[in-house]
Write a protein that binds this DNA or RNA. Sequence first.
DNA 1: ATGTCTGCAAAGCTTTTGCACTGAT
DNA 2: ATCAGTGCAAAAGCTTTGCAGACAT
Lengths: 167, 167
Amino acid sequence: MDDIVSNKVRNILTDYLEQNHKRKTPERYAILDTVYSMSGHFTLEELNEELELQNFHVSKATLYNTMNLLLSVRLVVRHNLKDGTKYEASFRNVNHCHQICTVCGKITEINSPIIVDAVCKARLKRFIRDSFSVYIYGMCSSCQTKLNRQRAKKAKAKQKTKPKKKT
Amino acid sequence: MDDIVSNKVRNILTDYLEQNHKRKTPERYAILDTVYSMSGHFTLEELNEELELQNFHVSKATLYNTMNLLLSVRLVVRHNLKDGTKYEASFRNVNHCHQICTVCGKITEINSPIIVDAVCKARLKRFIRDSFSVYIYGMCSSCQTKLNRQRAKKAKAKQKTKPKKKT
DNA sequence: ATGTCTGCAAAGCTTTTGCACTGAT
DNA sequence: ATCAGTGCAAAAGCTTTGCAGACAT
């Protein structure tokens, strides 16, 4: 299962490196593998920690270089969110829909065939589409609950402090 | 025309500030006005330059603070793109579709009723949607042209250097 | 009068760069 | 044998923070 994906993405990388006369260094493959072993969004630091766990040490420069390379091969996606830069493994042409709570920042990846279908069908001006990301902003259920509680509290407090209307 | 928008967003800001017991400082309104006078995406520095042109000086700290404030009121949107952080004036609930060329980085804002409709209709898990951004990645027409030219060139060069097949 | 907001400068992060060395081609 | 790619450390950018003073309430 995972091996199939792993091989596919390794092959994509290899093709890219060969076609662009770039070197097939162990660092590049190790980073690719680790990226694909991580689940969901992760930071560069988290990626680095994971690599260290596997006793594979790379410098920051190499990490940045390689991630940019993977980015341009579209094997990873970079999101710049409220709480910093996050990466995500991503096959080419894989489309992502994210639900982002603007209050607590929680991100949930959702699967919405309706959206995917619409974006694929949409007419674009002189443009060959490859993939897309959708970010839907709003409020998650737990923040809604919190907000409601706060409002109830406030309303109560107001009743106590301002029992009379001005006249 | 613009005055109507300007007044609307000023009112939104005013309401927010009053409701949250924050101060209505001249800086906040000046920054808001300038943000809404700028077209498309802009960096913080560009915003600052524009403010300076209008002889309105603000410190970086205030710029960042105020932009974060406007961000939380959803009067501006922040994009973190390949070439850094960009801001954009945005009414609440205004939805944006972007076409991003992964080769040259050019961003075009597109209007796609199909996409807007789909995202609005999509079912979300326990989430109150507010607004959304769509980023469609691919290749713009000028990069397509360039690429085709390069390929033609390469093919020609290959014919010259490798006229024989190996046997 | 009060305490928030601002300006300035310093600190703290993140990302890039320079240079010497290593290793893929 | 080359020179792209790497590691390390320093530099450069970007964003936040601390503190003193200003000003909206």
